[in-house]
Simulated scan of single mutants.
Amino acid sequence: MNCFKSIIALAAALSLSVAGASAATMHIFWKDLRPATQALAEDAGLPMIAAKLPDHGETLSLGLQDKIIQLAGYALPVDRDGDLVYQFLLVPWTGACSHMPTPPPNQIVLVTPAHPYKMSEAYQPVAVTGALKPDMEKSQLFILDGVNVIQSGYTVRKAEVVGVDTVSDTITLPVNSPWTFLNKKKN
């Protein structure tokens, strides 16, 4: 009988720790995914480009491994059927990867939603919640002028995805950029 009570107490403790884990979602920003020594995109006047970085942006934040995070960014579909998206790249600014140079891998997250996400347009602002895995992966992105292979530094699988109005730490493209039409209006 005491053994049975111990098992029930252990099961209750485990269920509390699982419930506590879901309450421990870390709201992170794009800067949290790169080394503190890496220059900010705003400091260069342009978004970060992997080729210009000493490590090509391949240094990842291993301290976030398996943490439940929430990160807002812009969704660029990788695998879709009509308006249902089964996998997408989460990027820190509009135009990244298809209209502009690719961000470094430590600024790209490959996201697989828990359920197909209905998306009306590329670069839709979303917030992603799930377990972050530092993991270099390559994805084929089909764009107007052909196929582009994009390397992401992180993955979030079985992610919860919700649309958001704005991305708080987005990068606004410089006024002299030919891609300024991609800037999302901030409220």
Rank of each mutant, 00 (worst) to 15 (best):
G45L: 06
L90F: 09
L64R: 03
I68Q: 13
L60S: 03
L62T: 13
T59V: 14
F88H: 02
S98Q: 13
L89C: 09
D66R: 14
P77I: 07
L76P: 10
K52G: 00
M48V: 01
I68P: 00
D83G: 00
V91Y: 02
V85I: 14
L53I: 11
C97F: 09
M100R: 09
G57L: 07
G57V: 11
L89S: 07
M48R: 15
M48D: 10
A51S: 15
L90H: 09
P92W: 03
Y74E: 03
T59S: 14
S61N: 15
S61M: 11
L60I: 06
C97Q: 08
D79L: 12
I49T: 11
M48T: 06
K67A: 12
P47G: 03
A50V: 07
P92R: 03
L90C: 11
I68F: 10
P92K: 02
L53T: 01
I68D: 09
L71N: 02
C97I: 10
C97M: 03
Q65E: 14
M100D: 14
L90N: 10
T94K: 14
T94E: 13
P103E: 07
Q87I: 00
G73V: 07
L84W: 08
F88G: 07
D66H: 13
I68R: 15
P47K: 07
L64S: 04
L60N: 02
I69M: 05
F88L: 04
F88P: 04
M48Q: 13
L84Y: 07
I69A: 02
A96D: 05
D55N: 13
P92T: 01
P54Y: 08
G45H: 11
L76N: 04
G57M: 08
T94F: 00
A51H: 09
L64P: 02
D55C: 09
Q87T: 13
G95P: 09
A50N: 07
G73D: 08
P103V: 08
G63L: 11
P92S: 05
H56K: 15
P92E: 12
G57H: 08
L84N: 12
F88R: 03
P101R: 07
A50W: 06
H56I: 00
E58W: 00
P77D: 04
H56W: 03
